[in-house]
């Protein structure tokens, strides 16, 4: 029920408006004042939330048609690097097909095409490092510290993954990070798996 202030009240709304503003001539104004305060508040909250979840390092894509295995003890991805994807019959490096395992000799411990590509990436990294050291002689000399991200379908034969790992080790990449889907302690699923 509305609350009225005590005193005289007009019988009809138009009469009241006429009395309060005689110049308007009884016409209804076409302008409505928007209350922008609530909208600005909402925008501010959204911006703060998005800034908090912002990552300057970008997103690591998971190859489509790939189901990652589950893990409870997994941590966040610590280092970025080239991504090796081992599918059922293909090996990809940063999205490009490097080798088809049907063509490869299954008896070989590694995958030669993958080793060559990784050696090239390592050499390119070393050249950049040398150039930086040439410009700044005080720069610390560090051995090559190669970090690789390995993604494989959960049903892939680990023999294929092992061959890719062997190739990586041969090329000097020894720090591996196996991409997994993080499981919560109570068994619930976490993120990951999106193509």
């Amino acid at each position: 029920m509305p609350v009225f202030t005590p005193g005289r009240h007009p019988a009809y709304e138009p009469i009241g408006r006429l009395r309060s503003n005689p110049l308007s001539g009884g016409k209804k104004s076409g302008f409505t004042e928007l209350n922008l305060t609530a909208m600005v508040d909402m925008f501010t909250v959204i911006v703060i939330f998005l800034l908090q979840s912002f990552s300057g390092e970008g997103e690591v894509q998971v190859h489509k048609n790939l189901t990652l295995p589950d893990s409870e003890e997994a941590g966040p991805l610590a280092e970025r690097g080239p991504i090796i994807v081992v599918m059922h019959d293909e090996v990809l490096l940063d999205g490009d097909v490097v080798a088809s395992l049907e063509d490869e000799a299954a008896d070989e411990p590694g995958i030669s095409a993958l080793t060559e590509k990784l050696v090239k990436i390592r050499d390119a990294n070393n050249e950049v490092e040398e150039e930086l050291r040439r410009r700044d002689p005080s720069r610390e000399v560090k051995p090559f510290d190669g970090h690789l991200i390995v993604q494989a379908d959960e049903e892939t034969d680990f023999k294929l993954v092992r061959r890719a790992i062997f190739s990586a080790n041969e090329a000097g990449w020894t720090h591996l990070q196996f991409s997994v889907t993080k499981l919560m302690a109570n068994g619930g699923g976490g993120g990951g798996g999106e193509g």
Partner: peptide, 24 residues
């Protein structure tokens, strides 16, 4: 604010990947 929201939504990381590190 609208520009900020558009930029942040476009660059948001929706899926954070987890990993198990192994040093061979």
């Amino acid at each position: 604010l609208s520009v900020c929201i558009t930029f942040l939504i476009a660059t948001a990381v929706w899926v954070e990947l987890s990993s198990l590190p192994v040093d061979q």
